[in-house]
């Protein structure tokens, strides 16, 4: 790349300032707060119902609650609703359980055409993979710190 190109690039980046619409971060934050909260509230409601009607302990009710949320999210992904919800709700749709389920279900659907092994199997965690990798790495780091602090 020529020297002039570098100078032109800097000048153009300065020129572009204020000439492109920015993400409406306030509106996005408000929507994310309420939709994310509502998703958690829904999860809490499901848990309460399981405790109330099926006499699970609060801890035991956790797993079936997560399973129901995953199924709901995968269903809405398949019906083509979740991506629209995601565009509207932004970070609110990324709340761990439903957002994670959506990332896996959408990748699986997308690669169905390449078959169940090379397609679905190897691409399912394309979007969710980094979350798992860095989730495990972060858990290890936190666990190590905790061990060093509490172990004597």
């Amino acid at each position: 790349m020529s020297v002039k190109m570098g100078v032109d690039q800097k000048r153009y980046q300065v020129f572009l300032k204020g000439r492109q619409p920015v993400r409406p971060w306030f509106r996005n934050s408000v929507r994310a707060f309420f939709t994310g909260g509502a998703t958690c509230l829904l999860g809490q409601g499901i848990q309460e119902l399981i405790v109330h009607y099926y006499h699970f302990s609060e801890k035991e009710a956790g797993n079936p609650t997560v399973a129901i949320l995953i199924m709901l999210s995968a269903l809405l992904t398949g019906l083509g609703v979740y991506d629209k919800f995601g565009q509207w709700a932004g970070a609110g749709s990324a709340v761990p359980v439903t957002g994670f389920a959506n990332s896996i279900a959408s990748a699986a659907l997308e690669h169905k055409t390449e078959g169940y092994v090379a397609g679905v199997g190897s691409n399912m965690f394309k979007v969710a993979g980094p979350v798992i990798v860095y989730g495990v790495v972060a858990a290890f780091a936190v666990g190590l710190v905790r061990y060093l602090l509490t172990h004597d």
Partner: peptide
């Protein structure tokens, strides 16, 4: 979408640009 961005049904938010 599939090549350049995300799976079509993935709920990512796109910016106004």
């Amino acid at each position: 979408e599939r090549i350049f961005r995300f799976p079509t049904e993935y709920g990512a938010q796109k910016p106004p640009t």
